[in-house]
């Protein structure tokens, strides 16, 4: 079972990464990169890194890729407005509906067949859980943690200063 999941996630990750590199449109490339990150999160779960898997989806696929998509939106260079055909809109809504209903079906399956979902109740084994990693972060690695927060602060200030339009530019 574990081997099968590894092959599914690994092949999916490699495939979507290849699609990302070969794609011409940046939006499609970004979507494929999000796909890669979801597959990698699955592999992290296989490796018992539960906190990192959640962070992968929240930080990478959620925050960083949304930033990328915003910039692609801002720098929309070649694509023209008003060319969205009705068929394309139908396809978009259809794919969103299919993915959403898949999630709902899986959630209901987990309720109907509780044996299909294995819940780990053994609290002695806490490799990679939020509690264990958090304990390490706030004891052994407290100084790097604080330095990371300073790094983020510097990045925020730098990004704002770099991207803002100067007052004398506007005229």
């Amino acid at each position: 079972m574990q081997l099968l999941m590894f092959y599914i996630f690994g092949l999916g990750a490699v495939l979507s990464a290849t699609l990302m590199v070969t794609n011409i449109k940046p939006v499609t490339a970004a979507m494929n990169l999000i796909m890669t990150m979801f597959f990698l999160a699955g592999i992290y779960v296989l490796l018992d890194a539960h906190l990192i898997a959640a962070l992968q989806i929240i930080v990478y696929a959620g925050a960083i890729m949304v930033l990328f998509l915003f910039v692609i939106l801002l720098l929309n260079v070649h694509e023209k407005e008003g060319e969205t055909a009705r068929r394309k809109v139908v396809i978009q809504f259809g794919s969103i509906a299919i993915v959403g209903s898949l999630f709902i079906i899986i959630a209901h399956l987990a309720v109907i067949y509780p044996s299909a979902v294995k819940v780990i109740t053994d609290t002695a084994y806490e490799f990679g859980t939020t509690k264990a990693v958090g304990k390490m972060l706030f004891t052994d690695f407290l100084l790097p943690f604080e330095i990371a927060s300073f790094l983020l602060l510097a990045a925020i200030v730098g990004a704002v200063i770099l991207a803002k339009r100067r007052i004398d530019d506007s005229e």
Binding site: V59, Y60, A63, I64, L67, F68, V71, L74, L75, L151, L152, A154, A155, I156, G158, A159, V160, L162, A163
Partner: peptide, 14 residues
């Protein structure tokens, strides 16, 4: 990576 993305994308915009 988050810091790099923020600063890098700001550079790209400018």
């Amino acid at each position: 990576a988050a810091a790099e993305a923020a600063v890098g994308l700001a550079i790209i915009i400018s």
